[in-house]
C-alpha cells in the first residue's frame, strides 16, 4: 500500500531541488561527446554534451531536457558527478547507479558513497515504471561514452 510517505521517498527534497533548479543546463558549443535519449513511454528527453580535458577526463558538462522530475533530477545530479571523472570512472559510476536501481549488488569495489546525491533516487525503486525515468540520462551517458571521441584518454 502506498501513502504520502512513499511519495515523500520518491520525491525526496534533493530531487525536487534539482528538478526546480537543474544544474549544468545548456548544451556545450564545442562538445567532444554528445548523445540524445528519449523515452517514448512518457516523452522524457535528455540531450547531453561533454567536453573532455587534455587528460581525457570530463572537463565540462551541459544538458538540456524535458520531462518528469525524476528524469530531470537524475540528469542534473549526474552532470554534477561527472565533472572531473575519467571516462573509465564515468562508466563505473553508471554501472554502480544502475546496480542501485536494479537492487543488485554493486560492482566489486564500489560503494554507495560514490553515488552522492544519487542515493536520493533510491525511493524510485518502489515505483517500477519510474525506474526508466531515472535511468534515461544514464542510458544517454552510455551512448555518449560509446562514441569514438571517448577513447581519447
Amino acid at each position: 500500500m502506498m501513502g504520502t510517505s512513499d511519495l515523500d521517498d520518491l520525491y525526496a527534497e534533493i530531487i525536487l531541488d534539482h528538478y526546480r533548479n537543474p544544474r549544468n543546463t545548456g548544451l556545450l558549443a564545442d562538445p567532444d561527446l554528445q548523445a540524445e535519449g528519449f523515452n517514448p513511454f512518457c516523452g522524457d528527453r535528455v540531450v547531453l554534451t561533454l567536453a573532455l580535458g587534455a587528460d581525457g577526463g570530463v572537463e565540462r558538462v551541459g544538458f538540456e531536457g524535458e520531462g518528469c522530475s525524476i528524469s530531470q533530477a537524475s540528469a542534473s545530479i549526474m552532470t554534477e558527478l561527472l565533472k572531473g571523472k575519467s571516462v573509465q570512472e564515468a562508466h563505473a559510476l553508471n554501472a554502480t547507479f544502475r546496480a542501485l536501481m536494479a537492487d543488485a549488488e554493486l560492482p566489486h569495489g564500489h560503494t554507495p558513497d560514490e553515488l552522492g546525491e544519487l542515493t536520493a533516487l533510491e525511493g524510485v525503486k518502489r515505483f517500477p515504471v519510474r525506474i526508466k525515468c531515472a535511468l534515461l540520462p544514464w542510458a544517454t551517458l552510455q551512448d555518449a561514452l560509446a562514441q569514438p571521441g571517448a577513447v581519447r584518454g
Binding site: 502506498m2 511519495l7 512518457c42 522524457d44 520531462g67 518528469c68 522530475s69 519510474r130
Partner: peptide, 27 residues
C-alpha cells in the same frame, strides 16, 4: 510533468492516463 501528477493522483486512488496517448504528433 504529467507523470509526476499521475503519481500523486495514484497515491490518492485516482487513476488517470499520462503520456502522449498514442497520438504523438498531435500532442
Amino acid at each position: 510533468h504529467p507523470h509526476d501528477l499521475g503519481q500523486v493522483l495514484d497515491a490518492e486512488g485516482v487513476a488517470i492516463r499520462t503520456g502522449h496517448h498514442c497520438a504523438m504528433p498531435l500532442v
